[in-house]
Write a protein that binds this DNA or RNA. Structure first.
Lengths: 321, 321
DNA sequence: CTGTTAGCGCCTTCAT
DNA sequence: ATGAAGGCGCTAACAG
């Protein structure tokens, strides 16, 4: 295995010079820097990260924390795309993605604590934004840098990346009313009270006001209650759902009632392949990969100043297909 | 930060004795071993992994490799559960889960190479089993230990964990014919020629033979072709699909044709929440978490001998709900 | 601008 | 059964 001593020897310089040259330290002349870098490149030298991390007192890993099973959100494929976005950025920075995932909150916290104490990991991404989260509390307390995916509603100082759910709600609703010519849209949400659902709903309601239509919201849950809701509202001619699952479920119940077909529907996050429904399904694409890269940008914003209107917060735009 | 010197000092022994005691080296007397371990525990000492890894010349991380986007399999939620199973086991071994995920095969290979050369990672899990996979080739060539999820069809010597897809196919088909009283089941598969689909199909065909029914397979794809297939087979009264997505899609087309409802269906991997279809959906649970833990067991089978009938291969059983 | 030296935290020969 | 010393690969004072 090629170490820094080897390339120092081949270059005819001391180890420290080699080290500095490879790290682009200005104290080394431009000429020798280039010479040594070229040599290292040619010889195929690659630094040992365990050694670097030891001297740095900090690991080149970012801890990515998944929500515990019981609170996990429905949009699974979404997370894989986020991971992709995150890792693409990490690789560029010679960082590595370590994940903490577990069924129980206790184990998860233990996992993160080990990453900090034993792994010397100093940067984290939380793939969720819960209130009173013990992990976030632990990270804050130890002054570790972390970014949450989704806007936290408790601590306004935390860094986060989110979709502009209000704008997305407005965009989706406008699309439904304008392009799809819907007159009586219903907004379908889950039983979870997630912040993003409420924000999307606000967008929907704002557009409804503009178009002078009565806003109508259905919360999923007990089937017969939803059926009754549908019966009370035969005027509904379009769906706006907080995600594909909710939308398809509601649509199914509507069809059961009225036998409709190719019903217009707008939802978010295209988490399902086509072919699962015969609704006229449109989706507000939230660009999970972009969320991932933006997350990393924020995570490293201490070393690489970024230009965002509100530092510490990034909102990702959307697109309707 | 508490180092091994500190606890050595507090224990009134040398650093090397402390090190040996903490690593349960038999060269240290049982008594002092226990004394020092208790002390370390009480003081809250935790070893620095970057230091350990440096001296060991090997990292305490396992690289988990995702398939590139273009070849990704449909069963996404499945992977999150597998991760959970893997990590639960890794934590117990004081190991960490590092992921390699990328859009292109080139970047992915680079990612893995960096993990090996710079990160000194020596154990990997491939969340897929492709033929002629460059990553697997690279790992083999460097004599690194890896386990694939899914049975590889090229290199019989590779370690893998898989479902017993043949048995699962038999189980599912039997359930369909016995419990659900189906007379003319159709087997629905994707256009991908994945090995597990063919194995499940074999199970189905074997059962069909036993029950003396004509095996019938529909490959998804171009919609009108599938519609024509459905028209030609009005006798179909039950579906066995290779996954929820395929099943629901086929079901939708059947309903479009015949207006059926609460149609019996068996599929695999319960990857969707209920409520998306009004088919009578049953699922063969493949226990992804168990696959994850079994994977780790295999990955460490060099240090922790395991008792399996076929060493190097583990098949996970299933359950029908 | 470059080299010498020491040290990051831990493990492991080699002594005793 | 335990200690002393050296080294893993790299970086960072401190010199010159």
């Amino acid at each position: 295995m090629l170490t820094i001593r080897d390339i120092a020897a081949k270059a005819g310089v001391s180890v420290s010079t080699a080290s500095r040259a490879l790290n682009n330290n200005p104290r080394i002349s431009q000429a020798t820097r280039e010479r040594i870098q070229a040599l290292a490149e040619a010889e195929g030298y690659l630094p040992n990260y365990n050694a670097k991390n030891l001297t740095a007192g900090e690991s080149n890993a970012v801890g990515v924390v998944f929500a515990t099973a019981d609170r996990s959100q429905p949009e699974n494929p979404f997370f894989i795309d986020i991971l992709r976005g995150i890792n693409a950025q990490l690789v560029q920075r010679d960082y590595v993605l370590s994940v903490a995932i577990s069924k129980t909150a206790d184990e998860l916290l233990k996992n993160v604590k080990a990453m900090v104490a034993q792994g010397k990991i100093k940067r984290f991404v939380l793939l969720y934004a819960h209130q009173d989260d013990p992990i976030a509390a632990f990270l804050r307390q130890h002054h570790l840098r972390f970014v949450t995916i989704g806007q936290p509603d408790d601590n306004a100082n935390d860094y986060f990346v989110d979709n502009d759910n209000l704008e997305a709600g407005i965009g989706g609703a406008t699309f439904l009313l304008n392009q799809l010519q819907v007159k009586h849209p219903v907004f379908v949400e889950s039983t979870h009270d997630w912040a993003y659902e409420q924000q999307r709903r606000q967008g929907y309601e704002r557009v409804a006001a503009t178009f002078n239509v009565e806003p109508l919201t259905c919360r999923l849950g007990e089937l017969n209650r939803v059926r009754a809701f549908i019966k009370r509202h035969p005027e509904i001619d379009g769906i706006m759902a907080t995600d594909d699952f909710n939308g398809i479920e509601f649509y199914r119940l509507m069809r059961e009632q009225y036998g409709i077909n190719h019903f217009p529907m707008v939802s978010f996050n295209q988490s399902l392949p086509n072919g699962l429904t015969d609704a006229d399904l449109h989706s507000v694409n939230l660009f999970p990969e972009k969320m991932g890269s933006a997350t990393v940008a924020l995570l490293f914003s201490d070393k690489e100043p970024l230009e965002t209107p509100t530092p510490g917060q990034i909102k990702i735009p959307f697109e309707i297909k």
